[in-house]
């Protein structure tokens, strides 16, 4: 079967690969481009561990066709830190024990980042809504919600 060339930006660098028409973005990232930030949890859009940002919007990589990402900007957890400087969300997750096994964390961070980029001062309800599509099995949601609210507070303080 003929493969299709695809080009997109991945965490601010241009990448090119070949994909089958039916390949999803998660398989292309993990097995084609060795980008292991997004995880496989269910392959059917139920768990959220493969959440990435496409042009700033949170999307499930397992339900996104690779060829549909042509020319778009895909961002994963691997691109969150600015060099050696962690993103405020990453610091807040560390400080609030918001990752136990760490497997849902990349997806949680992307969902949270999409929220804060859109709404720098979210309410608790906003946060709960933003991570409603991300399943966590061991950390528990409370530390994660606390971390996201703390990150929003830290950002606000910086700005003030």
């Amino acid at each position: 079967m003929a493969k299709i060339p695809v080009q997109f930006r991945l965490n601010n660098s241009d990448r090119a690969t070949f994909a089958e028409a039916a390949d999803n973005l998660l398989t292309t990232l993990r097995r084609g481009l060795n980008e292991f930030g997004p995880k496989y949890g269910c392959g059917q859009g139920a768990c959220g561990v493969c959440t990435v940002l496409i042009d700033g919007e949170p999307q499930l990589a397992c339900l996104t066709l690779t060829v549909a990402c042509e020319g778009r900007h895909v961002e994963t957890v691997s691109g969150m830190a600015d060099g050696p400087n962690m993103h405020p969300l990453q610091n807040a997750f560390m400080d609030n024990f918001a990752a136990q096994c760490g497997f849902c964390t990349p997806g949680m961070l992307m969902a949270a980042r999409a929220l804060l980029d859109r709404n720098p001062n979210p309410t608790r309800e906003d946060v709960v809504e933003a991570i409603a599509g991300n399943i966590c099995r061991c950390t528990g949601y409370e530390p994660i919600i606390a971390a996201i609210l703390a990150a929003a507070g830290a950002r606000g303080e910086k700005r003030a």
């Binding site: 292991f36 957890v77 990453q90 997750f93 760490g102 497997f103």
Partner: peptide, 17 residues
């Protein structure tokens, strides 16, 4: 293991090329 978890660098078994 926290820095690895929040940066996506924690090596789960499937994260190997």
């Amino acid at each position: 293991d926290m820095p690895g978890h929040v940066t996506g660098r924690s090596p789960f078994f499937d994260d190997h090329a």
